[in-house]
Design a protein around this nucleic acid. Sequence first.
DNA 1: TAGTGGTCTAGACCACAAA
DNA 2: TTGTGGTCTAGACCACTAA
Lengths: 245, 245
Amino acid sequence: MTTDKINRHSKVPFYHQLYEILHNRVIKGEWKPGDMIPAEIDLVEAYKVSRNTVRQVMSRLVDEGFIYRQRGRGSFVSHPSLEHSMSRIISFTEDMHQRGFEPGTQLLNAQLIPASIDIAEKLHILPGEELALIARLRLADGEPMSIEESHLVHNRCPNVICYDFSRSPLRQVLSHDYGIRLVYARQVIRAILSIPEQSRLLKILPRSPLLQIERVSYSQDDIPIEFLKIFYRSDRYSLYNELHD
Amino acid sequence: MTTDKINRHSKVPFYHQLYEILHNRVIKGEWKPGDMIPAEIDLVEAYKVSRNTVRQVMSRLVDEGFIYRQRGRGSFVSHPSLEHSMSRIISFTEDMHQRGFEPGTQLLNAQLIPASIDIAEKLHILPGEELALIARLRLADGEPMSIEESHLVHNRCPNVICYDFSRSPLRQVLSHDYGIRLVYARQVIRAILSIPEQSRLLKILPRSPLLQIERVSYSQDDIPIEFLKIFYRSDRYSLYNELHD
DNA sequence: TAGTGGTCTAGACCACAAA
DNA sequence: TTGTGGTCTAGACCACTAA
């Protein structure tokens, strides 16, 4: 049993807090595939929320394929499938765990910069407006995997660069300390050649191919918050998705 | 106003009946893109169901992209969007039209080859089994855009290489002449460097970055039919998709 | 019969947009 | 200030599973 509780004075909705809690338990393997999850009634009791709220969270976990429900029997953790990946926003940490790596992070840079015309347009702000740039080197099993350059609209999260992002997950800081949840994103995927600094940081040969992702993430209020550039080592990383007719 | 009503004695849940009603109105254009949908409270009144039930239905329509909601303003019919590209299987022709190019095709190769161990595994067949290889150079506005190498399980579509695939769409041939519809696919996306032959065909510099897609497509009977490799010029082509929390 | 998830209700209070 | 969607509650009754 954990000590997770719903923070009843937080601006974060109960259903979101409860989702984080239950999702984590499944991800972290606290409940194993096939295990029965506590009955809805028990979750109502344990977290002191209404059954509707519990069911809202469970429905989302079902949609995402983490659990399945059987009337009259209970709710159970799904057996692992290949799915998800490319339609859900997931953290680097979760992504690496899914791929069987141990994630790590080195902070490369954290400073305030003026928005370029290019980025300003993507974030619906004015050129020159203040951005928090947070650059991180991401590791998988201790070896460089990717470079992430996050550009945050600073007036939405003042002083955000004071956090230690080699340790604190960015999404968690935004959620807990600024009430900002990134619920939606649009991204473009390209193949590019590494520039010398990238080659050095990622420990690859000069002019190696990289998978580049440019992503604009929106808050629960549909306001663009972050422009993120990720550069993945192509010898270690590829994307997977499924298509339908 | 229509005469649709919830059948209160049907076994079909109210939320399902209401979904059918509202979905139909959007599909049939009774409400146009941008139109405001009656407020939740009005739907409660009109259909004599609770607000929870109305919201359950609306949430599904939002998830499916038919409507969007704005707090304080109302709910509205979505404008048709281009943006489902990355989760739907679309033809090169359709893709190019969406991107504003005029598509073209040159046949590079069409022959029978034995399946490699690698490809046999992906297609659930035995190594050495016969494959139809169809290689095409794809053009956009007359300039090279990509190379496609299609490997078809030959016993599912005998003599398929006799068609002129510079003119006949492969999917159309499979559907009309072999009764095979490709309804589902899994793909992997990578960044690679071009090899000399690719550079020559695509008219790009040696060792340029390419976006490579490897796709296995399944028929309506869930049988793997095609292993497709696509190499896109990265200076002309990028992928786009949307993510959700 | 006891326990589970499936459906549904009638309210409440809040945050936000527009007048 | 009014009307909208966003969140949450405390119940109710049903259908199904397993003992």
